[in-house]
Simulated scan of single mutants.
Amino acid sequence: MTDRKSPSSWTLLSCMPVVVMAVVAVTDIVAGPSVGFLPLVSLGPAFAGLVGGWRRTAWFGLAALVLCVALGLYDGLFDERRGYTALASVAGVTGVGVAAAVMRSRREAELASVRSIAEVAQRVLLRPVPLTAGPLHAAVSYTSAVAEARIGGDLYEVVSSPHGVRVIVGDVQGKGLAAVETAAVVLGAFREAAYDEAHLSGLGDRLERSVARELEGEKFVTAILAEIGTAHEAVFLNYGHPAPMIVRSNGTVDFPQPHAFALPLGLGAHGSEGPEPYRVGFAPGEQLLLYTDGVTEARDEDGRFYPVGERAHLLKNVDAHRALEALREDLAQHSVGPPHDDAAMLLLRYHGHGEEKCVPPSE
């Protein structure tokens, strides 16, 4: 389980029991028994239980009892009830601290188990994209809006099929586990249909039927499908998703738009026609960036959206993953505070055929 505390704060909490008991002992000796500091020795095991297990708490409780007895004898408090009251206070706080430490350890173990299972499920859902697919080199970046989560409602996949390299980037309505479940439906349907359907429009129809069958109410998924073959062009199907960005070999940027806009996946039952495929030139030396609206709708402190087109120069790095990491870091610097929406980016570079390898997304 990942510890979110900084090393300095962790060290401070670890040393606190010793510091507290030392301060109480010195103060009691200097001020005398009339001040009544002796019961505060129980703060030692109380602080010990914040960062340690039950054994650590018990050892500090034992040390506090010994210190309490020593100070009580020094002050002559066992001739009256005050000494025994202080001992009872230390013993009681130690007992409660040990019980709390045991319960916390059990909860942490359960949470670690749940997180490990969730991470396996996340890796299965958003598995690493191939480093090379057909004539393309690929890199992906994913930033979840949910703290400590690796995935959310955005999705991506790259599949080398007999009909070309087929790609999807999508954004599920909503966040959290419900969005992850919807993303799993879309990705499962895409991975199966990408191999079977001869035409990109047929692949889109399969996705629409799968999503409409699985989703309830007004849930929907914006998505863009792409197919890159050997004809130096890319074919797109856009289901209400932000337009792709193509960086030409001379550095100019295009955002090819569909001839007619279509509703997102899941809303096809409302009677509108599906999207029409449109073709765009995509040649060696050029780059294709697919992304979700968590990228373009990120705002700075003045409320300005992230100008992804103006940041195309950040993709000049020879290494595709470093180039995309530079863009992700620039996006994080542009945004104010934690991300409010998931942000996925998939970078495809038209190079040549290579051996297919898999790499995980940058986080």
Rank of each mutant, 00 (worst) to 15 (best):
K5E: 15
P7V: 06
L12R: 11
S14T: 11
S14W: 04
C15I: 11
M16D: 07
M16A: 15
V18Y: 05
V20L: 15
V24H: 04
S34T: 11
V35L: 13
G36E: 09
G36A: 03
L40N: 02
F47T: 11
A48C: 03
G49S: 08
G53M: 01
T57W: 01
F60N: 07
G61H: 04
L62Y: 02
C68K: 01
A70Q: 02
G72H: 02
G76H: 01
L87D: 05
V90Y: 00
V96H: 00
A100D: 11
A101Q: 03
R104H: 05
L111K: 11
P128V: 05
P128C: 12
G134E: 04
A138L: 05
A138F: 00
V140M: 09
A149V: 00
R150L: 13
I151K: 08
V158P: 05
S161E: 06
S161W: 01
G164N: 09
V167R: 03
Q173Y: 01
K175W: 00
K175P: 03
G176I: 01
L177V: 12
L177K: 07
A178S: 12
V185Q: 10
F190C: 10
D196R: 15
H199L: 15
G202W: 06
L207G: 03
R209A: 14
R209H: 13
R213G: 14
E214G: 09
A223V: 03
L225E: 07
E227S: 15
A231Y: 08
N238I: 03
N238L: 07
V247T: 08
R248A: 09
G251W: 05
D254E: 15
Q257H: 08
S272W: 08
S272H: 13
P275H: 07
E276W: 01
E276T: 08
R279S: 15
G285F: 08
L288Q: 09
L289V: 06
L289G: 06
Y291P: 03
T292H: 01
T292M: 03
G294P: 03
A298Y: 01
R299A: 04
R299P: 00
D300Q: 00
D300C: 00
E301N: 05
K316A: 13
V318R: 14
D319K: 07
E325D: 14
R328Y: 02
R328P: 00
D330M: 04
D330A: 13
V336G: 04
V336T: 12
H340K: 12
D342I: 06
A344Y: 01
A344K: 01
G354F: 06
E355G: 10
